[in-house]
Design a protein around this nucleic acid. Sequence first.
DNA 1: TACCACTACATTGTAACACGTAGTAGTGTA
DNA 2: TACACTACTACGTGTTACAATGTAGTGGTA
Lengths: 109, 109
Amino acid sequence: MLDNLTEMLKGVLEGCVLEIISRRETYGYEITRQLNALGFSDVVEGTVYTILIRLEKSKLVDTSKKPSDMGPPRKFFALNDAGREELQKFWGKWEFVSSKMNELKERKQ
Amino acid sequence: MLDNLTEMLKGVLEGCVLEIISRRETYGYEITRQLNALGFSDVVEGTVYTILIRLEKSKLVDTSKKPSDMGPPRKFFALNDAGREELQKFWGKWEFVSSKMNELKERKQ
DNA sequence: TACCACTACATTGTAACACGTAGTAGTGTA
DNA sequence: TACACTACTACGTGTTACAATGTAGTGGTA
């Protein structure tokens, strides 16, 4: 029904990942599952991993490898100070854009 | 402060243009001004024109050239049935994504 | 006349992003 | 042995907003 959210997710998915990581240290596979559970059911691992690598390159997260008893070792991600700042900026932008969008939607001029 | 909305506007700007056109037949230059007035002050004409050409190619709008007493002739755009359907779909997607985003934002788990 | 501001549209190239696809590898189970 | 699930990585593609630039019509002004 909502056949393709791809374009609308551009620019917000990274923020979602930041928000999820901010709750607690976590790893790519689980982040993907959480996004799917949220409702973004078409988001695949490849997408999440590219975002995580981007966050790492931008130095917004700290990483650490930890063994798992369910499969290969996990690469955990945790927000650092720069990441927390970026997350706050992200929600600021979201607040702005979504308020303007709703204004446009509601306005019957 | 909200230094760059570019990425977050991807996927929503086209919907904004559709919504603006749905109110009444209008043209690129004015659409740009309306978006700027809405708060999307960095949106430039080039962006709007590429969207309009895209809408035209997708056959979501009907166009007509009309003279202006303020400058060059204007290319007016009007939504057709396919465009109205697309606009409805767009708001459906927006409703979905924004509700999920707010759910994520509010949820303190 | 010459110049400028405003209106109005079009085109080209670029960077960023989500995603498809494919591959590698560890663990548990039937 | 085969499969399912977990877990990460890499490469290529299509879409998008935007910067930059150019063209052109109108009106004002010095």
